[in-house]
């Protein structure tokens, strides 16, 4: 939308794929400018991996016009393959051989001269903190190490477009943050990153643009900020232990959203210090004493849940929508 002059690294329109009568991708459009990070966000089974498989020439689409690095994966698969590097959802390392042998295998397949292959191997192993483990079979690596080896292997041959299919799924928090750092460093080399994730935080942290994939369609796309604007603004939430106090407060305050079951009141707020102070003053003036007060700013979780709520879930308002993930996105003030 904003970039029309750049040649897109990846462009797809009307991408479709179905297995039997199960439609996995129901006509999606993607546009990823060069040198940016694009996140395809969606719950399990949304079709993220299928999209990556099609764009990375692993499987063919049923319909749609696709260009990856300017080439059609269906007719010029090798031209696409020469430009891309893929780290799949399940580790794509050879577990029977050592980390170093894995790297040299990649160097050989990229037809690097022996000396250059050794140099690239040593350099990447050092960069991904795998030098000490280089002589051990990959089967003995931890999940985080295997992912690092996986990405290191993807980087041999310096691909211009890198696909990362759920690069942090199954990693512990420290490894996840390491992985984010690695992905950020990729960008300084000017490569394009196509990332899939089911973690909104991850997309928010890394991606320039995000598309939310749900039920085989793009439910929304834009920058993280643009997406956040799609859902109602933030609010302050007051929770009461005592039903009497709750009723008194509800009577005294206007412009609130009541939740009689949970004994909570929501007051619209943008979460700035100034507005928060005004609300606190107002509560004091009305003699309202809530047991807890939490500030909620809209984040991608809200967008995600709002966009991907399936009908059967939204029957129960308590379990659906943004209320499902309050604990994570709120900061308790008192």
């Amino acid at each position: 939308m904003t970039t029309t002059t750049d040649t897109p690294a990846i462009a797809a329109t009307g991408l479709r794929k179905s297995y039997g009568d199960k439609t996995v991708l129901d006509g999606i459009d993607l546009h990823v400018p060069e040198g940016t990070v694009f996140a395809l966000l969606g719950p399990n089974g949304a079709g993220k991996t299928t999209a990556v498989k099609i764009l990375s020439t692993l499987i063919t689409a049923d319909a749609g016009a696709i260009r990856v690095a300017g080439h059609d994966p269906a007719t010029h698969a090798d031209a696409v393959r020469a430009a891309i590097g893929v780290t799949g959802q399940f580790s794509a390392v050879d577990n029977l051989i050592t980390g170093e042998e894995n790297m040299l295998l990649m160097a050989d397949l990229h037809h690097l001269p022996r000396r250059e292959g050794r140099r690239a191997t040593a350099e990447l192993l050092a960069r991904f903190d795998l030098t000490d483990a280089a002589a051990r079979p990959a089967a003995t690596y931890s999940g985080g190490m295997r992912r690092r080896l996986d990405i290191a292997m993807t980087l041999v041959g310096s691909p211009r477009i890198i696909f990362l299919d759920e690069p942090t799924t199954g990693l512990d928090p420290r490894s996840r943050h390491n992985m984010w750092q690695i992905i950020r460093e990729l960008l300084t080399d000017g490569v394009t990153v196509f990332l899939t994730t089911q973690y909104l935080e991850e997309a928010d942290e890394l991606a320039d643009r995000i598309a939310v994939l749900h039920g085989g369609r793009i439910a929304a796309h834009g920058t993280a900020a643009e997406l956040k604007r799609l859902v109602p603004g933030g609010h302050v939430r007051l929770r009461f232990e005592d039903p009497g106090a709750y009723e008194r407060a509800a009577g005294a305050l206007r412009e609130t959203v009541r939740d009689d079951q949970a004994l909570t009141l929501q007051i619209p707020s943008d979460g700035t210090q100034r507005e928060l102070r005004a609300i606190l003053d107002w509560l004091d003036a009305a003699d309202v004493h809530a047991d807890t007060l939490t500030v909620h700013t809209p984040d991608l979780d809200d967008v995600f849940f709002a966009l991907t709520a399936t009908p059967e879930h939204s029957e129960n308002p308590e379990k659906s929508g943004k209320s499902a993930n309050f604990d994570k996105s709120e900061e308790t003030v008192r």
Partner: peptide
């Protein structure tokens, strides 16, 4: 069944 063959399939080999 190993991911490595999927990797080979996405390489210009």
């Amino acid at each position: 069944t190993e991911g490595i063959v999927a990797r080979f399939r996405t390489m210009a080999i």
